[in-house]
Simulated assay, not measured.
Amino acid sequence: MKPTVRAFLTCTLLPFLFGGCGNKQEGYEVRSGKVMWNTWRGDGLNGTWSEGVVTEDANGFEILQQKTGNMNGYAKNTQSVFYGPNTLEGADAKTFKLMDDAGMARDAKHVYDWGTVIKGADPESFQRTTLGYVGRDKNDYFYDGEPLHVRDMASFKILQDAAACSRDKKHCIWARDKFDYYVEKQANPIADSKGFQVVQSVYAKDAKQVYYGNSVLSGADAATFQGLGDTSGEFTKDARRVYRRGEPVEGWDAATIQLLDFSYAKDRKHAYFRLESSNAPLILAGADARTFEVIGPSSKGFGYARDAKQVYYGAEAIPGADPATFVLDAKDTEKASDKHRQYHYGRPGN
């Protein structure tokens, strides 16, 4: 490697990835009796270091947690507590300590999450729950640091794990007590507490009504309401209708609907392709629902299917493809063939 190239990598790329020239790294640094806060401003190839003074006196300074990703980290001395370059006003340095390695800390008076006080939280009893963005103490539950003012702590129950109910999953019903169920920070009244149950994470039902997220699913029959088993949880049905994202799917036959792999579905009348966007599922024009079946996946997030007459790539029929002899390449599912020709991405060609 040429010296100029080596120098470029060492003083531009490596500071971002590994801490930089002169052992500089993002976060706290004790230097010449002062405590500095170092920040890299730039990308992996170009940028500069910025630094500021956290405190002029490094005596007694203790780094509790160095900067990690977007979390600045905590430190303290005998008088003050710091979150990144800033002093945590009102924090008690004598009793301040970390609660975990994900930004949670406490002192005698407060609980802190990423340097922000969780108002009203009891520091002695506060703890994270199995949903990392939800905490609790002896008096209440807290969602992203905000109190929920739970009406009945004794019956409060978390219903989902983090995989089923991630913070960014809209409409997810994650908890309940005997009075309410919860979607994000909102409490919603339960009509029949004894019969309440979650259906596929974003729906629930009791003996009286069906719920979708924060809303009652108008017209749904609670007695026959059930999930259809799709991984997204968005499809359900009752005796009369199929529902997607809390809305009836027009034309689908609830008695015979089947969700198939790779975004396909069928009922006694039609075959469908289920778009992941907000658009309604498409009817595959001319498809024979009786003989319709899925062949296998593609690498584009959908798949191949066929009936007695046609082969489909996603929602499109492949012109001229022979369904009886059409097969996918075992090594590359974007390639296929039949007795006539080869196909690539659902089109004739190698």
Rank of each mutant, 00 (worst) to 15 (best):
M1H: 14
P3T: 11
P3D: 07
V5R: 12
A7Y: 14
L13D: 04
L14R: 10
L14M: 12
P15Y: 05
P15M: 02
G19N: 02
N23M: 08
N23V: 08
Q25D: 06
Q25P: 02
G27S: 11
G27D: 06
R31F: 12
V35S: 00
W37A: 01
G42Y: 13
D43K: 03
G44I: 12
N46C: 12
N46P: 00
N46Y: 14
T48H: 11
W49A: 06
S50I: 08
E51P: 03
A58H: 06
F61E: 04
Y74D: 04
N77G: 01
T78S: 15
V81R: 07
Y83K: 05
Y83V: 02
G90V: 04
G90K: 06
G90Y: 08
K97L: 08
L98Q: 05
A105R: 11
T116V: 09
T116G: 12
T116K: 15
T116Q: 15
V117M: 01
K119A: 13
A121N: 05
P123S: 10
E124D: 15
E124K: 15
T130V: 09
G132H: 14
V134R: 07
D137Q: 10
D137A: 05
D137L: 11
Y141T: 01
Y143P: 03
D144L: 15
G145V: 08
R151V: 07
D152Q: 05
M153W: 06
A154W: 06
F156Y: 09
F156C: 00
R167S: 12
D168L: 10
K169G: 07
K169S: 12
H171N: 13
C172M: 02
W174D: 00
A175K: 00
A175S: 01
D177K: 09
F179Y: 14
F179D: 02
Y181W: 05
Y181M: 00
Y181P: 00
N188S: 05
P189T: 02
P189I: 00
P189C: 01
P189W: 01
A191G: 04
D192L: 03
S201L: 05
V202P: 00
A204S: 07
K205A: 03
D206M: 02
Q209A: 09
Y212Q: 02
G213H: 05
N214K: 15
S215D: 15
L217Y: 01
G219C: 06
A222P: 14
A223W: 06
F225D: 01
Q226I: 10
G227C: 09
D230Q: 11
S232L: 15
G233D: 03
G233L: 07
T236Q: 11
D238M: 03
R240K: 11
R241W: 10
R244D: 05
V249R: 04
E250F: 11
G251M: 06
A255I: 03
Q258K: 13
L259P: 08
L260A: 02
L260M: 10
S263E: 13
A265E: 01
D267R: 03
A271L: 02
G286P: 05
A287R: 10
D288N: 15
T291H: 06
P297W: 10
S298H: 09
S298M: 05
S299A: 09
G303I: 01
Y304Q: 04
R306G: 04
A308Q: 11
A308M: 10
V311K: 08
P319Y: 01
V327W: 10
A330K: 13
T333Q: 12
K339W: 08
H340R: 08
R341D: 14
H344G: 05
G346D: 03
P348A: 14
G349I: 07
